[in-house]
Structures are given as C-alpha cells and as structure tokens.
Design a protein around this nucleic acid. Structure first.
Length: 916
RNA sequence: GGGCGCGUAGCUCAGUGGGAGAGCACUACGUUGACAUCGUAGGGGUCGCUGGUUCAAUCCCAGCCGCGCCCA
C-alpha cells in the first residue's frame, strides 16, 4: 500500500541513480531511429545553480524526456565552459585570502596549475546540482571547453579563420577593464545611468582673435544678442581626457563657428595647439555646439579622429592612471602633455586636479549636473575605459552574413518568432569582435612573434617555427602571444566541438545540426549569434540548430528581477528540499508562457506540490480498489461508458500535451496534463468509478479496475516529462504482479488510434457531468443540506433520454445524491426544476424547498437567458449580418437562439408550475 | 532617441474576427469518501483609452496613455 503522501527526498536520489545506471540518459543504440539533440548552454565552471538555470534545464529536460519516450535516439549533451575572467577571479581571490603571492609573482604555469587544481576540486558543482533537478543529460559525454578535443577545435578554428583573413590583429579602441587589465567585448560591458557632471571648458583661440557668439534668440530662433569671445566653449563629462584632445569639432552647418573652422585653439594645461574641424558628430543643440575630440579615449571621438585625420594620443597606463613614464605601448606624446605633478595619478584623482587647474586658469566656465551613461565591467564592476591597444579581432560582419541568411530563409527558426528581430538588429550592425583577453586562464592564442614583430599563426609551435624558417631561411627565436581567447570564442563551437569535431565522428554525423537550443534572451548575442556564425562557417554551411527557443526570465512574485542585492532570490535547491524537485519543475514549466516572465512564489510551489499529492492519492485510491495494469486488457473492448470515455479522454489529453510540447508551449503542455489528471481523472472518472467498484457486476468491476489503471498509466506517461520522480515512483509502485518491464523514463509515449475515441460515450458522460453539475448548483443555491437526498424526475423525456438516464443511473444517483429516477410528463408538486440541454428535470425535495428561494433562483436564470435571447435576436435582425456573415455562422446563431428560447420556455413552464 | 514586449477577474496569466477563460486568492457549505496538501458551490471583468476597417473588434489597423526590457 502506498503511504499517505509522496516522500520526494527518498525517491529522488533513488530514481536518479536507477535511471543513470539503466543507461537511459545515453542515446539508444539504434542507427535507424530518428535523432533528437540538445546541447546544454554550458554554465560557467564557477557557477552554482540559480533559478534561471533551473528553468532553462527543466525545459530542456522536459523536451528530452518526451522525445526519448517517442522512441527517438536522444542526446542531451552536457558540460561547462571555463569562464576566463570569472574563474581567474575566483582563484586570485583565493590566493589573496590565503595570503599567497599574486598570480604575477607566481608565474603563468604555476598559476594555471593552481586553477586546474581548483577546477578539479570545486569546479562544475553546478552539474551535480542539475542532477537534483532530475536533468537527464548524458553525463558520460560531459565536456569542458578546455578539454583536449575542444581545445584542438579552437586552435583549428583560429588558424583557419586567420588564413582566411577573418581573424586579424589590429590597434583599435577596445573596452578596457582596468581592474583585470584586459580587453573585454562590448557585450561584457554594462551601461548604467549615473549622476555625473557636464564641465564647460574654454579653449582660447590660438591666434588671439575674437568672434561674436549669439547668446539670446527670438521666437523664430534668430539671434538677438551676442557676446564677444576669444575662446571656444566645449563641454565634457570626462575632463581628465582633455589632455588627449587633438581637435575641436563643430557641425559643418553650424553658422556660429563658420569662420573659426581651420583655425586652432590652444589646449590649456597641455599647452599645445589643436585644430578646429567639422564633423556631423558635433551636435549644435548640445552645450555650445562644439565638442572636444579625444580619439584615444572615446569611441565616437576615435571615428571623428579617423575622418578628420586627427592623431590619437593615449594618456593612461593599463591601470587607468595617468602615464608616469614612457612605455613601449604608449608613445611619448601623451606623457609630454601631462604635467609632472599629474603623472601617475589615478583617473578619478586626475579628474579632480584637471578641473581645479582649469578653474585656476579661468578656463572652467560652468558645471552642470547631468545624468550620464557610464560603462562598467560586468565582472569587475569598475568603470571601463576605452583604450587603444593591439588586439585580435574576428571579422564578424563577414561571418554574420550567412548566419543572417539562415534565419531569413527559415533554416533556423526562433520561437517565439519575434526574437528574430533582435537577432537581425544586432547581426546587421555587428562590430568587429575583440577576442583576445589579457588573462592566463583560457585558450592561449596560437600566434608567435619573431623579434621584428612578424606574426606566425599555427596550431603548434613547431608549425610556427617552420613558417618562420621559411620566411627567414633559418631558425629564429619565437615568442608566443601572451593572451588567451574570449571564452565565448570556444563556446561558439560548442554544438560541434562537443560532438567530436574536427574528427569526423559518428556523433557529429548523427546529431549535427542539433534539434533545438533552449536559452534566455540575454544570451542571443553572446552565444546564439556566435554559434550560428561559427557553425555555418565550419560545418559546410550547415546550421548548428533548427530551432532556437527563447524563454523569459524567472522573476519574483512582484515581477522584480531576482538579484542578491535586492535579497529576493529564490534558491532552487531550497525549493527542492522543501517541496521536491517535481514541484519546483512543475511550477516553473507551468508558468513558462511565451512572452511573459515566469513569476515564482511560495504559492506556486505549494500548489505544484499539492498536485503531486493529488496524483499520489489518486494512485493510492486505485491501489485500494484493486487497480492494476492488466496485460490482457484491450481498451477497445471496454463496455462501460465511463471506461470508454476515460480511455478516449486520455488519448486526447496525450495528443494535446504532445502538440503543445512540439510547439514549445510548455505551460500549455503542463497545464493540459494537470487538468486531465486532476479535473477529469480525479474529479470525475474516479467518482464515476466508485459506484461501479462498489457494485456487484464483477465484469464491470474488473473492467473498471483495468481501465482505471490503464488511464493512470497514460497520466504517468504524459506527466513524466514535467514530474519525473513522482511519476516514476508511481509507475513502479503500481506495477502490479506482472511488473513493468521498463522504467517509465524508457517507456513509450501514448500513441493510440482514433478508434479508441468513442464520441457516443463522450456525449453520454458530458451529459451526465452537466446534469450532475446543475443539480449540485441548484441544491447549493437553495441551501439544501448536502446529506439530503431526493428522487429525480425527468420531465417529458423521450426514449433516448430515458435510455441514457437509465444507462447512467448509478453514477447519477451517487454524484447528485438522488434516491431514484422517475419519468413523468409534468413536474410534481413541491419539486425544484431545472433545465439542462433543453430538457427539464425536477428534484422532489418536499419540505426541504424554500419556495421563495426557488422563485428567485428561477427568475435569475430566466433573466440570464432573456439577455442571451435579446442578443441573438438583435444580431439575426440585422439584415447586413444575415447577408454578409458566413452561412455557418448565421445558422449557428439561429441554433443558439432556438436553444436559448427552448431553455427559456422550459424555465417559464417551471415557474408556472411552481406557482401552481 | 531606436527596437521589442506587455496592459483581460483581487493576483499571475491563457485566449480567439462571431456565445469572456484557467490557476491562485476570496466567500459559503462539507469530514460515508484516495486526498483538508481535500471536496462541492459561488461572487467577481465597460478585455488600458480614443478613433478606424468590418455585417460583427477584447482580437485587425492608427494614435494616445501607462509599465517593463534591450540597444544607443
């Protein structure tokens, strides 16, 4: 006998191990079976499971389990990425905490060894946590982006792209993280609005000349007042960069400065002359319309500088301090502009001193408060600095073209489709991708330099040496590039590198292109776009996945994004501990509507947990009543209407769940299964089965036991993708003597023909359900004591109705608390009447009836139907409607009107009868 | 500023060119019952606002208002 409630704790680890030991997580060994493949979005090796992972992986697991039950050869490929910055950060912090030497003192090799040691001990704990969710990944194939095979793939890709001219080295402005002292990509920069200032500086004209500048305007915008100026006013949010200015730009159409273009201003403090140029970038509306140009420290200015031929002068060292000495990287021009007492100052300190000095010089004209967008490193949290350095770049624009086309032509589909726009928007405006990082943890760039700075790119040092020898005619000393690649560079290869590429493995042939990628929208740029580019490029134009399903975020009960600082984080493992993994999964999946964030709250987890209990108790009831799977039971041979009905309903529910899953409508799939299990099987079937089970018809009892068990089996199957543990537990505990022969995880998805759907039985049962519901409603409306019973009289029922009533008399009597069924031409005295489907029935409740309450009830009913009738009549009275609407619609309305009319007539008759 | 999305019951969300739905919450009643982690019944909505298209609009179109996210 089943316990009173399900104990998730005990069941979860037991079944997870059984599943894994059974080999169910691995693709089945059947080369003829259709394949289904998902690669996991690899979590950071440093990561720990948060609710977003829980959602993402539950969705994947639900699909994977469903597809497995369909009999496909299913691979869910798991693994982690090495998370360059994050991992290095973790280990450096550890070193610091232990009071150990820094990584630089330690040296590259020793440091990397240390990181590997950390990875071995505590890396990838997130994958262990995924198991607690029930994730049925093929762990035997677990991969890590720094694995040998994946690293070989990275080298090959780098070298080939370089040969094709799609990877190149260039000196460009990059986003520089002064904390980690590395370049980062645009996507790793978080722009935040902060309170800043707008400083207005006067740069004096170099030749000492003056001009008239308008300071007041009339309604038409014509100047009415002027002042004489011997300077040009520029405004900046970053005063410390002024020493690097190499020009001042005004808009080409700006009349105010027309005569100044081509002249020079004297840059205060630095005391150098810089030209006044024109550029569209200058906004006449902003400040006084002139803008200082610092090509080495601002992305817009860099482009202006290129257009106007202005020099780029770097002021900072890698820690974002003013230069204090000449370096190989920064030329001396920057240093020369920095006064002695400013050298070596941190950028924020430098800002204060520059402003103060400008004030002393009389060049600070105004300071405004201003909201400004400031870039922060998403890992370090420090202000990111645009910085001019030599880096490696991918020509993303070229690689993006076929990746855009693949989505345009529908080879790869986004679900929901709207995300295509986001993808296109980014891909069509893509910038060169900076892939080098000044870190140690990662794939070291396979480029070597000779002492003249010639570059040799090759998969191995030996090959690079050979290239060098060919060039120089002799062996020369080479040094390898110190930098590593962006982690996303290797993640971009994930869909094929994990399958063994560049080897031509069986897995690659079988599973590439993968079926679907499931991820959150914030990762479309980072990862989806890059996988598309690399996959198509290296897999002979073949896309990495057919579908991309984008799910929304998990947010708290108030719709707020979860964050540690807000303290509104839900820990998925805490939920698993308290409610069970199935409840967590079900709450997430059933809330995963497309285009809506998934709100989670204690209520939802509770309600999902209650559902597992309900399911459990339904099975328990079955067990107590002798339900057991019967190998000889043929659903087609069922005789009882109730059984024929529940068999048909099971099949319909299974099909609907499947259809929803195929369309990534996870919430609809889960809720369909929920409603079938609870509101159909438990609420009606089991209730309807009770009179049969308590009766004396042995054949009917045996059939109902078998059919009830059969339908429960279908419920377990269709719920398994969402709630694997409780369904597996029940599958095994309800196995009966015959046993199951297979775990539920490996069982078949329900697949039955239409011949098992008996519409006549469905009509019977729907009639019964309507009737019972109406009787209950009438009784409740009249405050009839629940325990009271009464005879039910069918008024003026035809033969078919009488037959049906007799056929279903047992369940009707039990569910509606009816003592006996009678047939009559008119409702008897002291009875309550109601109309269902155009037929009148009466309950002879004798003195239990409050006649006034009954009058009120009937009047209210009538009112409702009158309103309906008015609406239909109005519609049908509209000639244009009758003329223009499709015939079927008009006929439908006529039918509805007739039904409503019949209902009303019967109710009026009932009313008349009541008043005698 | 550009893009995307949302606005339907107290809350969270489905939904469809032709009779407004679910879950939760709420109210009343209920322990013969597998289940009180439950059952039965009930109340509750001018489908954001304003126009347009249409015989017919919550749904399609335009504008507006409000909210959220992404990008600049």
């Amino acid at each position: 006998m089943l316990d009173k409630t399900f104990d998730p704790q005990a069941a979860e680890s037991r079944w997870y191990d059984e599943w894994e030991d059974s080999g169910a997580f691995q693709p089945k060994d059947d080369p003829d079976a259709k394949t289904f493949c998902i690669v996991i979005p690899p979590p950071n090796v440093t990561g720990s499971l948060h609710i977003g992972h829980a959602l993402n992986n539950t969705l994947q697991d639900s699909l994977v389990r469903y597809q497995r039950m369909l009999g496909k050869r299913v691979l869910w490929q798991p693994g982690t990425d090495h998370a360059g910055i994050a991992t290095q950060m973790v280990v450096e912090r550890q070193l610091a905490a232990e009071g150990n030497i820094s990584r630089r003192d330690m040296g590259r090799e020793a440091f990397i060894e240390r990181v590997w040691k950390w990875k071995g001990q505590s890396g990838g704990s997130i994958l262990r946590q995924l198991r607690r969710l029930g994730a049925s990944c093929d762990w035997s194939r677990e991969r890590f982006t720094l694995d040998e095979g994946l690293s070989a793939a990275v080298l090959k890709v780098f070298v080939e792209l370089h040969e094709q001219g799609l990877i190149y080295r260039d000196k460009r402005l990059v986003n520089w993280d002064p904390h980690f002292q590395t370049a980062i990509s645009d996507l790793e920069v978080e722009n935040k609005e902060i309170d800043g200032h707008f400083w207005h500086f006067a740069y004096p004209l170099a030749d000492g000349s003056t001009y008239e500048f308008p300071i007041a305007h009339d309604e038409d915008g014509k100047p009415t007042e002027w002042e004489t100026r011997d300077y040009i006013l520029v405004a900046t949010t970053r005063p410390e960069t002024m020493l690097g200015d190499t020009g001042v730009a005004v808009h080409p159409d700006d009349e105010r400065y027309k005569d100044l273009v081509g002249k020079k201003v004297r840059l205060p403090i630095a005391d150098v002359e810089i030209p006044i140029v024109t550029d569209e970038h200058a906004d006449p509306e902003q400040g006084a319309g002139a803008v200082k140009i610092t090509p080495a420290h601002d992305f817009n200015d860099f482009m202006v500088g290129q257009r106007a031929g202005l020099a780029s002068i770097n002021l900072f060292d890698p820690e974002a301090r003013f230069l204090s000495e000449a370096t190989a990287e920064a030329d001396d021009k920057g240093l020369a502009r920095i006064p002695e007492d400013f050298r070596g100052l941190d950028r924020f300190e430098a800002r204060k001193k520059i402003v103060a000095r400008m004030d002393e010089l009389g060049c600070l004209k105004a300071v405004e408060d201003k909201k400004i967008m400031q870039p922060f490193g998403d890992r370090s949290g420090v202000v990111v600095e645009p910085y001019l350095t030599d880096q490696w770049f991918v020509d993303a624009e070229t690689l993006a073209k076929p990746a855009i086309e693949a989505v345009e032509t529908g080879k790869t589909k986004f679900v929901p489709k709207n995300w295509e726009k986001t993808y296109f928007e980014w891909m069509r405006n893509i910038e060169p991708w900076c892939i080098s990082r000044q870190l140690w943890w990662g794939h070291r760039i396979p480029a070597w330099y000779d002492e003249n700075g010639n570059i040799f790119v090759a998969e191995t040092e030996a090959a690079a040496q050979a290239q060098a020898k060919e060039k120089h005619g002799k062996d020369v000393a080479l040094t390898q590039d110190e930098d590593v690649l962006d982690t996303w560079f290797s993640s971009a290869l994930w869909p094929f590198s994990t399958l063994g590429w560049p080897e031509e493995t069986d897995e690659l042939k079988a599973f590439y292109p993968t079926t679907v990628l499931i991820t959150a929208f914030d990762i479309i740029f980072f990862w989806v776009a890059r996988m598309m580019m690399q996959g198509i490029h290296f897999m002979d134009g073949e896309i990495p996945f057919h579908d991309v399903f984008i799910h929304r975020l998990v947010v708290d009960a108030n719709g707020q994004k979860m964050s540690k600082s807000k303290g509104n984080v839900t820990d998925p493992l805490d939920i698993v501990d308290r409610y069970g993994a199935d409840a967590l999964r079900f709450a997430l999946v059933s809330g995963a509507a497309q285009n809506a964030n998934i709100r989670v709250s204690e209520d939802r987890f509770e309600s999902a947990r209650n559902f597992t209990t309900k399911l459990w108790n339904a099975a328990r009831f079955g067990q107590m009543n002798g339900f057991a799977p019967d190998p000889d039971f043929n659903p087609a041979d069922a005789k009882q209407a109730v059984n024929r009905w529940i068999i048909g309903e099971s099949i319909k529910a299974g099909r609907e769940v499947a259809r929803n899953l195929e369309n990534y409508r996870f919430n609809d799939a889960a809720n369909t299964a929920y409603r079938f299990a609870w509101n159909v099987y438990c609420d009606w079937f089991l209730e309807l089965a009770k009179p049969i089970l308590n009766g004396e018809d042995e054949a009917a009892i045996a059939e109902t036991r078998a059919a009830g068990a059969w339908a429960l089996d279908q419920i377990l199957r269709i719920l398994h993708p969402f709630m694997p543990f409780v369904t597996e537990e029940l599958w095994n505990k309800t196995a009966g003597e015959a046993g199951r022969g297979t775990l539920l995880i490996s069982a078949d998805w329900p697949d039955f023909g239409d011949d098992l759907i008996d519409e006549a039985a469905a009509a019977d049962l729907n009639w019964l359900i309507d009737l019972v519901t109406e009787i209950r409603s009438v009784r409740a409306g009249l405050n009839v004591p629940p325990a009271a019973t009464a005879p039910l009289i069918f008024v003026g029922a035809d033969q078919a109705a009488q037959d049906r009533a007799k056929r279903l008399s047992e369940p009707l009597r039990r569910l509606a608390r009816v003592t006996e069924l009678e047939f009559a031409d008119a409702a008897p005295e002291k009875s309550v009447q109601a109309v269902v489907g155009g037929s009148t029935f009466a309950l002879r409740l004798e003195d239990l009836v409050d006649l006034d309450a009954e009058r009120a009830r009937l009047a209210k009913e009538l009112e409702k139907w009158d309103a309906e009738i008015t609406r239909f009549e109005k519609k049908l009275g509209n000639e244009k409607f009758v003329a223009n609407a499709p015939e079927a619609v008009v006929a439908g309305e006529r039918e509805k009107l007739a039904e409503a009319q019949a209902q009303k007539d019967k109710l009026e008759a009932a009313q008349a009868r009541l008043d005698g």
